[in-house]
Write a protein that binds this DNA or RNA. Structure first.
Length: 543
RNA sequence: GAGCUCGUAGCUCAGCAGGUAGAGCAACGCCCUUUUAAGGCGUGGGUCCUGGGUUCGAAUCCCAGCGAGCUCACCA
C-alpha cells in the first residue's frame, strides 16, 4: 500500500489527526451527511446571483465535498470543496464556527471529505462562497494528493490509479461522463425505433462472428473449456431467426490480440440487426445515429479530433474502389484504371509502379514537407506488403482491400461510408445480386480510423455451411483466427433467417471521437496494464 | 512482435561535457479574519526503476532486464 516511508509516516500522522478529530466530538467515519444541495445544484441556482441578492435572501445550504485546496489565514480560512465534478469555495472563520469548529478546520487536510452548513455570499473578488456556520467531518485522506496545479500527469499512474485521476483531473472525469451519455444516446436511438435490447452469451463454446483470437477459460463443474466472446453476431442473428426482428446489444468483446491506441483486449461493441433491411438502409440509419449521438453528447455535430474539425452531420459515401482512386497519393504516379481491380497481375504491376514512384519522390527531399514524407513512407511500406502478399498468391479482392487500407483509410478524417467490399474479405456478408465478386457491406470511418462495419447478412444455410468449411481448411493450414464450424448456427439459418442487415460499432472509438481522446485507454476506466513489479505473483486458485 | 522516447522526493519537474542530489507543490512548526497556483519565516523527506559493467569516483557513460508512452505490424 505504501510507496515509501514518507507515505507510511504521513499515514500515521493522519491517524493521529483522526484521533484529535474524534476528541472534538466528531466521528472519524460517520455514516451519512444530510446535504440539502449538491455543488452543481448550488452553482446552477446561484452561480449568477448578485452579491446584494444573496445578502437579501440569505440562502442557507448544507453541502458536502472533498477538499481540493485549503488556505488558512490565522483565525479564518478558505477551502475549495469538490463534488459532482464541480468546485465551490467555503469560508470558515473562528467567530462563525466557534473554537471546536475552528479546531476541526485546522485538522483538515487536502483530500478530506467534509460537510458544511452555512449561507451563500460573494467574496470581495466576486467568488460564490459558503459562509460556514457548522463544519462536519466525513472522511480523511490518509495519503497525499498529487500536485495541485498540474494534477496527476503521469499517464501510467492515471491509468493505474484512476480513482486519483478522476478527482484530480476533471477533464478525465468529463470523458467518462460523456461516455455514459454516448451509451444513453445509443440506447435511446434504438429504443425509439423499436429495437429490443438483448444480452447474449459472453462465454461461448465456439468463439465466432469475427476473425480474431479468443481468450480461453474453463468451467470447473462442467469440466468444459469456454471462450470469451469475440463478437455477439451469431447469437444475435439466431434471435432474428426467433422472430426478434430488431435487436441490439451493447457489451464487451474480448480479443486476444495486440494493444494499441485503438485496441484494448476488452472493448465495448454495439451490434444491431434489423430484419427486412439491407445495407443501404443501414447506411442511412448510421448517418442518423452518429449525428444523433454527437448532438446528444456534445450539443453539436462538430467534434475536434487530433487537430481536425470533424462534422458528423456531413457524410460522403464511396465504394471501396472509388476511395482508392480518390485518395491515391499524388506522388504515387498515375492512378490505376478501375479495371485494374479485376486482375491480380495488373494490380500487382500498378502497385509496383506506385512503389517506385514513391521512392523517387522520397529522394527529392527538401521539396516535400517532413510530415508528408513520413506519410509517404507509411504508404510505401503498406504498398510493399500489398505487393508481397499478392505475389504470394493472395486473391485479388484481398489485395484491393489491402490497397484501400494503405492509401485511403488513414486519410478518412471526415465521416465516410465505404461500401461494396470484395467477397474474399467478407465471409458473413451477402453477395451483390448483380456482382458476385462483391458483397453488400460497408464500413464507416472518421478521424482516420474505422468506427463500424455493416452488411446484408448471409442467410443461405447451404452457402454458410460451405463458408464455414472453407474456414476450417484455413484453420488446418494454421490460421487460428479462422472461424470454427458452428453447426447450431447453420441449423438456425436452416429454419429461415429473413433478409437482414446487421452492424457493429466500436463504442470506445466513437467515444474517442466525441471526446477528442487519441488513445482508447483514455476512454476506458481501467485499461489492462502489466503488473507494476513482480512481488509475489498471486497464486492462481482452482486450476 | 519491431523501432523511437521516457523512468530522479507523495506529485510536477530540474540536474546527464562523470565529483556521492535540487526547486515548486504537498508534509511538519510558527505568523496572518475576504484568499483563490494566497503569502512570509523555518524544518524534515530520496534503494536517482532493477541488476551488471567501465571508472579512483556513476543519477549522469555502456549492457541486460522491468514498467510506460508514441509510431508501425495484427485487428474493431
Amino acid at each position: 500500500m505504501f510507496e515509501s516511508e514518507f507515505e507510511r509516516g504521513l499515514f500515521d500522522l493522519r491517524k493521529a489527526k483522526l484521533a484529535e478529530i474524534e476528541k472534538l466530538g466528531q466521528a472519524a467515519y460517520p455514516n451519512q451527511f444530510p446535504a440539502t444541495h449538491t455543488v452543481p445544484e448550488i452553482r446552477t441556482t446561484w452561480g449568477e446571483a448578485k452579491t446584494e441578492e444573496l445578502e437579501a435572501k440569505r440562502v442557507t445550504v448544507s453541502v458536502a465535498g472533498r477538499i481540493m485546496a485549503i488556505r488558512t489565514q490565522g483565525k479564518a480560512g478558505f477551502a475549495t470543496l469538490q463534488q459532482g465534478g464541480q468546485r465551490l469555495q467555503i469560508y470558515v472563520r473562528l467567530d462563525a464556527v466557534g473554537d471546536q469548529g475552528f479546531a476541526l478546520y485546522k485538522l483538515l487536510d487536502l483530500g478530506d471529505h467534509i460537510g458544511v452548513s452555512g449561507y451563500l455570499f460573494r467574496t470581495r473578488t466576486g467568488e460564490l462562497t459558503v459562509h460556514v456556520e457548522r463544519l462536519t467531518f466525513l472522511a480523511k485522506a490518509m495519503l497525499s494528493l498529487p500536485e495541485k496545479y498540474h494534477g496527476l500527469a503521469d499517464v501510467e499512474l492515471r491509468y493505474r490509479q484512476r480513482y486519483v485521476d478522476l478527482f484530480t483531473n476533471l477533464e478525465s472525469r468529463e470523458v467518462f461522463v460523456k461516455r455514459a451519455k454516448v451509451l444513453r444516446a445509443l440506447r435511446q436511438f434504438f429504443d425509439e425505433r423499436g429495437y429490443l435490447e438483448v444480452e447474449t452469451p459472453m462465454m461461448q463454446q465456439i468463439a465466432g462472428g469475427a476473425a480474431a483470437r479468443p481468450f480461453k477459460t474453463h468451467h470447473n463443474a462442467l469440466d468444459m473449456d469456454l471462450f470469451l466472446r469475440i463478437a455477439p453476431e451469431l447469437y444475435l442473428k439466431r434471435l432474428v431467426v426467433g422472430g426478434l426482428d430488431r435487436v441490439y446489444e451493447i457489451n464487451r468483446n474480448f480479443r486476444n490480440e495486440g494493444i494499441s491506441t485503438q485496441h484494448n483486449p476488452e472493448f465495448t461493441m454495439l451490434e444491431f440487426y434489423q430484419a427486412y433491411a439491407n445495407y443501404h438502409d443501414l447506411m442511412q440509419l448510421t448517418e442518423e445515429l452518429i449525428e444523433f449521438v454527437a448532438r446528444s453528447v456534445n450539443g453539436t455535430a462538430e467534434t475536434e479530433f487530433n487537430g481536425h474539425k470533424i462534422d458528423l452531420a456531413q457524410w460522403q459515401r464511396l465504394t471501396l474502389r472509388e476511395a482508392i482512386l480518390q485518395y491515391w497519393p499524388e506522388e504515387g504516379g498515375p492512378k490505376p484504371a478501375m479495371t485494374a481491380f479485376d486482375s491480380a497481375q495488373v494490380l500487382q504491376s500498378r502497385v509496383q509502379a506506385a512503389i517506385i514512384s514513391l521512392e523517387k519522390a522520397a529522394e527529392a527531399t527538401g521539396r516535400i514537407a517532413p510530415e508528408r514524407l513520413a506519410e509517404l513512407k507509411t504508404i510505401r511500406e503498406a504498398l510493399n506488403a500489398v505487393y508481397y502478399e499478392s505475389m504470394k498468391g493472395a486473391p485479388v479482392g484481398k489485395s484491393v482491400y489491402n490497397l484501400f487500407e494503405a492509401v485511403a483509410e488513414p486519410f478518412l478524417i471526415q465521416p465516410t461510408i465505404i461500401y461494396d467490399y470484395p467477397v474474399e474479405v467478407s465471409p458473413l456478408s451477402k453477395a451483390k445480386p448483380d456482382d458476385p465478386a462483391h458483397v453488400e457491406r460497408f464500413e464507416f470511418f472518421a478521424g482516420g480510423f474505422e468506427l463500424g462495419n455493416a452488411f446484408s447478412e448471409l442467410n443461405d444455410p447451404v452457402e454458410q455451411h460451405k463458408r464455414f468449411e472453407q474456414q476450417l481448411s484455413e484453420r488446418d493450414r494454421g490460421d487460428d483466427e479462422a472461424h470454427q464450424m458452428d453447426e447450431d448456427y447453420v441449423r438456425a439459418l436452416a429454419y429461415g433467417l429473413p433478409p437482414t442487415a446487421g452492424e457493429g460499432i466500436g463504442v470506445d472509438r466513437l467515444t474517442m471521437l466525441l471526446t477528442g481522446s487519441r488513445s482508447i485507454r483514455d476512454v476506458i476506466l481501467f485499461p489492462l496494464m502489466r503488473p507494476e513489479k513482480q512481488e509475489k505473483p498471486p497464486q492462481a486458485s482452482g486450476s
